[in-house]
Amino acid sequence: MKEQEAFLERYETNTHRIGRICTIVTLVLLVGAPFLIGRVLGARPDMTAVLRGYLAVGLVWTVSSVAEFLIYTPMLGAGGGYLAFITGNLINMKIPCAMNARDIAGTKAGTTENDIVSTLSIATSSLVTIGVLAAGVLLMVPLQPVLTSPTLAPAFDNVVPALFGAFGYQYYRKNPKLAAFPLLLMSILFICVPSLTSQTSVLILPAGAITIGLAYRMYVKAQRRKGGL
């Protein structure tokens, strides 16, 4: 047993080490790529425009990145966290994918087992995306007319609603009492201020905080009933 604990501790320490190294290398590659491409094209980035652009649009995304980091890291654990931030597409793919794998494996948040499952899930998901995109790029000429056809357009416009419909059922049935309030609140908010639909990602943090607050009240009540508090 002790040997197993020592192994898991070693696994986690190494995950952080490998995760950090891989993230730093990916960062260097991604920021360096435009300069390398610039050498090929015989051009340099206009740094004033980069700064102006960053101030205009980047700051919003920086704040959003901080929120994403704070929200998703505990969900994903060490390995899953590093990988998810390297491979992107968090809300529309990696987070639901990891939550689904966690449900299937029945692991609890904050455990090494949960870290392992979410790492497996995110690594697999990323490899599938890389594979699909590579195949799509190779077959771009024959695939483009099919994928962009008006017949298929409504289906691909609704990938995210389809995803959250399925997850909505799965999560709401777990605790309908907990789900009712945030759903009602968000629906009223979007009905009153429909322009907020372009800001959905900003609302995730407050909606999550409210739901966690409600969950905590329920948790305290349940523990009192059990005599745990």
Partner: peptide
């Protein structure tokens, strides 16, 4: 808390479709 966070996230999207 993690389940609640995800429930909140799903609610934002479902609420946006209803709105």
């Amino acid at each position: 808390a993690i389940t609640a966070m995800f429930t909140g996230l799903v609610s934002v999207y479902l609420g946006s479709y209803i709105g």
